[in-house]
């Protein structure tokens, strides 16, 4: 599915300083029953966001109007658990384009990159700085610069660089995906398959 190209994102951010945010919290399994990819943002963080009677939980960050933006900042080990790509779909569909954490679970990171969300892994110290900056001023703007591979707290100019392999970076900046790449090498794949024992 096509996604928006990612180059430089300047945005306020939503802070979620909780560790081990797992994909069952991001999107509980009972909301995985669709056969199309739409509307998952409505159930993003469903059980943290809503009471059992569907009224919003006032103390949850997504229900607090002072926090907005296209960047979600999470605690260590973000996206652990299930392989459900629906978790990344829900984050994208809600309007986030970038998730920042000091550590990501592998499958979540892959899924995010595959659908056009940039996972930015920063040091624990820098993550703490971001949380403190947002706490002091919820209108704090972060700049995520993919070409330069940097993330900056604009008000203080504090900045850190992040890693991404050049293949995925190229894909995100151009809106390409792996399926296009693999379709272009089908002959090599056929030749490879022919010599497999299974």
């Amino acid at each position: 599915m096509a996604y928006d190209k990612f180059t430089v994102l300047k945005s306020t951010a939503v802070p979620m300083p909780i560790e081990n945010v797992d994909t069952d919290q991001i999107i509980p399994a009972r909301f995985l029953k669709a056969t199309e990819r739409k509307g998952f943002g409505d159930n993003l963080f469903r059980d943290w966001r809503y009471n059992p009677d569907d009224t919003p939980k006032k103390d949850f960050v997504l229900n607090n109007p002072i926090y907005t933006g296209k960047i979600l900042v999470g605690g260590k080990n973000f996206g652990s658990g299930s392989s459900r790509e629906h978790a990344a779909w829900a984050i994208y569909d809600y309007g986030f384009r970038c998730v920042v954490s000091s550590f990501f679970a592998d499958i979540f990171k892959n899924n995010s990159l595959n659908i056009g969300i940039l996972p930015v892994q920063v040091s624990a110290d820098f993550l703490d700085k971001i949380f403190r900056a947002i706490e002091a001023d919820p209108k704090t703007v972060l700049e995520v610069n993919l070409p330069d591979q940097t993330i900056t707290i604009l008000a203080t100019a504090e900045s850190e660089s992040f890693d991404i392999n050049s293949y995925k970076k190229h894909n995100l900046m151009n809106g390409y995906d792996d399926i296009d790449y693999l379709q272009a090498m089908k002959e090599d794949i056929s030749a490879f398959a022919a010599q497999r024992i299974y």
Partner: peptide, 22 residues
């Protein structure tokens, strides 16, 4: 190992996925 739905589509269409070696 487990994969996401985009990767399921990759395997169906090309029998391959793209993974950094852990």
């Amino acid at each position: 190992f487990g994969i996401g739905t985009s990767e399921v589509e990759m395997v169906l269409s090309s029998q391959c996925i793209m993974q950094p070696k852990p």
